[in-house]
Design a protein around this nucleic acid. Structure first.
Length: 430
DNA sequence: TCTGGGGTCCTAGGACCC
DNA sequence: TCTGGGGTCCTAGGACCC
């Protein structure tokens, strides 16, 4: 038996908004998030299969016997009872902010970690006993307040550390009638070890699962009884992390705002059709560079490294990437020029269906260095032009200001205007 | 599955420095 | 030169998550 006395004993909640996008649509359209069959479907022109399903309400899952990974509208039999809504990403973002503001009634800011648009991590170690007699009671109270104020149902995973809370959430809470589940060190054997479908566990995907199977590991219990040194040898750091996970151990420090080790900003897209000429590719890459530069400026970053990615549509999952270090910048023109250089040295006539521009090694704006090759005056002029463009874009949408090149063959900026995370933002100007 | 999009982290091999 | 070893940073590609 493992001695857990020196492991962190925190009270961690991970709270997930149930079928978030579908629920928001249900509420805004006076429908029932649990009882009505609703899907939210993005229909970009490059999205085939009748549209990409972004969210499915529990009733839609039940009525059409859907497994977890349905992603195309064509996967569902066409049925007049099914209610279909287009996504309104901006609405979901503001709803998410509303929900996080309710979490702030229960934890200090430093103990709240919004994790994604529908998931947050709360460390209630210091505050839970102000709100109830048991941890479970506090969880139910939070669920009720969220439901009353926003209409959203939530699932809560509770654990002594984030890993246990996450597994409680993903594997148990979402399926329990109460939408609640707890895992503590004492119940690791009861709740973790029996798990056989390894890819259900956070951090284990298809490839990792296959590697584990190859070693003869088919459950978390198998993992816990495997030789950790061999695991580390075969899977590197991930092997050691998985071994720790199988015993419920997670020493990540949760009392501080965690700073990601690396920060990147980038945009990618699947093209509406195969691109075969440098001319077309140049245009779309220029748009991407422009978009990325705009986001860097909005967030106050300069990048020291830019990379491009494109795939070979003959082998969809096999792509090429190439990066280059540059003087810190968030200038559209400079970025576009670097991207163009990368493209012309990397592309050798492949048929392309997927493209991306990423910037890494980001620094906050004040770290700017002086570029010896551009006069400060010109740099300043270009910077303020970019800022003006950003302001107009924020106010009126991306469509209002695009390079004339985007009107030519190859450009997708107009069609993509108003998209948030690649999906319809739901703004009036679209 | 004929194709969503934005991220973070890990790894192997190489360049370079002392 | 028949050549050591530790450390850091970089690059391209892979895996996973929501």
């Amino acid at each position: 038996m493992y001695d857990y006395s020196n492991e962190p004993h925190h009270i961690i909640f991970i709270i997930d908004s149930k079928s978030f996008y579908a629920s928001v649509e249900a509420i805004d359209h006076q429908r029932d998030p649990l009882r009505d069959p609703i899907v939210v479907v993005s229909k970009g022109e490059n999205i085939g299969g009748g549209g990409l399903i972004l969210a499915t309400s529990p009733m839609a899952k039940k009525m059409f016997h859907l497994k977890s990974n349905v992603s195309r509208l064509n996967d569902i039999p066409s049925d007049p009872r099914l209610i279909i809504y287009p996504p309104r990403m901006n609405r979901y973002i503001s709803k998410n902010i509303e929900i996080n503001n309710i979490f702030r009634h229960y934890v200090a800011d430093k103990n709240l970690y919004p994790y994604s648009i529908d998931e947050s991590i709360l460390d209630l170690t210091q505050s839970w006993n102000l709100y109830g007699r048991t941890v479970n009671e506090v969880a139910r109270k939070i669920q009720q307040e969220i439901k009353d104020k926003t209409g959203i149902y939530t699932s809560v995973g509770i654990g002594d550390n984030p890993t246990l809370a996450k597994i409680a959430l993903d594997i148990y809470a979402k399926k329990n009638p109460s939408f609640l589940a707890e895992i503590h060190y004492e119940t690791v054997k009861t709740y973790l070890w029996p798990i056989k479908n390894l890819t259900e566990v956070w951090s284990i995907g298809k490839k990792t699962s296959q590697k584990l199977n190859y070693l003869g590991i088919y459950s978390i219990k198998d993992l816990a009884h495997f030789n950790p040194y061999i695991l580390q040898e075969k899977l590197g750091i991930i092997g050691a992390q998985l071994y720790a996970l199988s015993w419920g151990i997670d020493r990540s420090i949760i009392d501080r705002h965690h700073a990601p080790k690396s920060k990147s900003i980038g945009n990618s897209q699947i093209l509406p059709h195969d691109y075969t000429t440098l001319k077309e590719l140049r245009i779309v890459f220029r748009e991407l560079a422009d978009q990325v530069a705009s986001r860097l400026r909005n967030q106050g970053y300069l990048t020291r490294c830019v990379s491009i990615y494109f795939n070979d549509s003959a082998q969809y999952n096999h792509g090429t990437s190439k990066q280059v270090n540059i003087n810190p910048t968030n200038n559209s023109k400079i970025l576009a020029k670097e991207v163009e250089k990368l493209l012309s040295t990397t592309w050798h006539g492949q048929t392309v269906r997927k493209v991306g521009v990423y910037t890494t090694k980001l620094a906050k704006r004040h770290d700017s260095q002086i570029n010896l090759f551009i006069s400060p005056k010109n740099l300043q002029r270009e910077l303020s032009l970019d800022q003006t463009i950003d302001q107009i874009r924020q106010k009126f949408g991306f469509t209002k200001l695009i390079h004339s090149a985007s009107l030519k063959k190859g450009g997708t900026a107009i069609k993509r205007a108003g998209l948030v995370g690649g999906h319809a933002g739901g703004n009036s100007y679209e």
